[in-house]
Design a protein around this nucleic acid. Sequence first.
DNA 1: ATGAAAGCGCTAACAT
DNA 2: ATGTTAGCGCTTTCAT
Lengths: 336, 336
Amino acid sequence: MEGAKRITIRKIASDLNLAVSTVSKALRDSHEISEETKRLVLEYAGSLEYKPNPYAGSLKNRRTFNIAVVLPEVADTFFSNAINGIDAVAQEKGYHVMVYQSHEDSAREISILRELLHGRVDGVLVSVAEGGHNISVHAELTAKIPFVYFDRACEEVRAARVLTNDYEAAYLAAKHLIERGSMKLIYLAAGSNLSIVNERREGFLRAIADHQLSYDEDSVVACTLDDSRNSEIIRNVLRYNRPDGIVASVEKLAMQTYYVCREENLEIPGRVRIIAFSNLSIASLLAPSLSTVVQPAFEMGKAAASLLFRALEKKIPLDEQRIVIPSVIVSRDSTA
Amino acid sequence: MEGAKRITIRKIASDLNLAVSTVSKALRDSHEISEETKRLVLEYAGSLEYKPNPYAGSLKNRRTFNIAVVLPEVADTFFSNAINGIDAVAQEKGYHVMVYQSHEDSAREISILRELLHGRVDGVLVSVAEGGHNISVHAELTAKIPFVYFDRACEEVRAARVLTNDYEAAYLAAKHLIERGSMKLIYLAAGSNLSIVNERREGFLRAIADHQLSYDEDSVVACTLDDSRNSEIIRNVLRYNRPDGIVASVEKLAMQTYYVCREENLEIPGRVRIIAFSNLSIASLLAPSLSTVVQPAFEMGKAAASLLFRALEKKIPLDEQRIVIPSVIVSRDSTA
DNA sequence: ATGAAAGCGCTAACAT
DNA sequence: ATGTTAGCGCTTTCAT
């Protein structure tokens, strides 16, 4: 099975009594080859189903036509849709997509990025993991290879990025709760080192201030990104802090809250309203249906990939370009 | 940014006044190199953060350390979890994972597989798209490169595969409905060309027969895999066929049924019970919570990847190995 | 218009 | 123990 007949440019050349260079040029439709020869070569190559070895050429011209996507988790509605956007562009451009998961472990993220530094791919798209980022690796990568952040970026690194309007969206989410009648709001934060989560927090706090509601240090609840302790944290908040409105910075925290409310017999939205940053397609089938801040996952992936390919095709330098695509609030029963 | 100083084995050799082959061997810890020299080379290479170009070596020894996963959709609870399983093994083995989506389009699947035929990856994992399969491409791939099906396989192709016990699971799902009191069962089939869907259908029908319930041609409802017409199909079935128990062959059909039942004001499980093949983690938060046949997505991905790597490492020929990992039924309110 | 030859970065058989 | 040499498959000057 392994060593099946590999068809090389050399075989074609010798079969046709031509030089390899002639065949190479003919295949790439060079002007310095006669139509006659081109036809001959193309035809024969076609009949053999010849396809060039993708990595032989890459050695010479430094292009693998592979790109990497590094993100926390594939099994996540936002990220899997972002991959779809990336994939759509990659397919169109004839690129191949390698997917890497950091599982929110920044050490693993670093080792992944390190590997990517040495020629396996032509460009990299990253959505960073929570935790202490090794900025130097990110910076090194940016310097070496076209590189674009999407959704979750390292603020300190000068690199292109595609984001959503986290601050405004969180502001509007909080405002939405307030308009529905909530007075005591809390924000469930996931991962303190994530700029997007912090942006959302600031938008949230701003909305509270703008509406003359009070808040204290308990208004922002630090959750973890692995789920182990979140139930407990959320339960305590609901029991002792007694909020009547919740903004969840990520989908999984909203789900955790649902479970806890069920256990504690707290009615949603009667006792507490909840809205979450989430791309769950079946949010409307939950009990109760969940109001969401929907991020443009597909579009963000697409935009990030487009940016990357523009750089790969050398049309434009990447610098610190910044694209912002707005999120949309969808109101459902959890904030009725 | 592009042409940054690339550190090659040759540079190391000349800097250290050694031959490239000596450096190469030292780096690979060959026994024919003195400890002294090894230390020297390793140290210097380390200080330069040298990493071999992954594709230079691949030219010679035919190994890219890349594998491909070809599946219908990343944004799917089953497939994204399967990717997790695959990724776990790949990471451990030092392999890189390229992901390709067919989007249930078998023409696209074919063109993807064709591309994979020519050396971009060392092995391929496939879960086939619905529709007319070009068996010859699958067969060609099997002959050329280590190849494993997972979950959705081409029956006609002689290749290794990792499956779940679709027949039995469907049997048990139907039995579950019957035991709860359902008398008139239907099966929502998605995609006629999928062997797993057909296996499930047979298990379903067998359960009905074994329990002396009647069925006719309307008991098996042919749905589509793109959602456009499913609502209508399901609505008609519910209106005119009036089943009191439904087995959905895939998650999305269950979700469609939920929407339709809501529109039509049909109570679940009062008016109709429903159970679905699904890996939705929040099935218990739906209204009502959804009973599911949970496939071992992660384990199947892991098993398929392990099989593939065993072949890649030449330890074992792939032949037509067949691994079956059972699904688990989780009973919830939709079948109460 | 075609061909010979060098080389991309690395490995491995074959010297020394 | 170290070095020389010849490729892997392809592209690209530089001849002819």
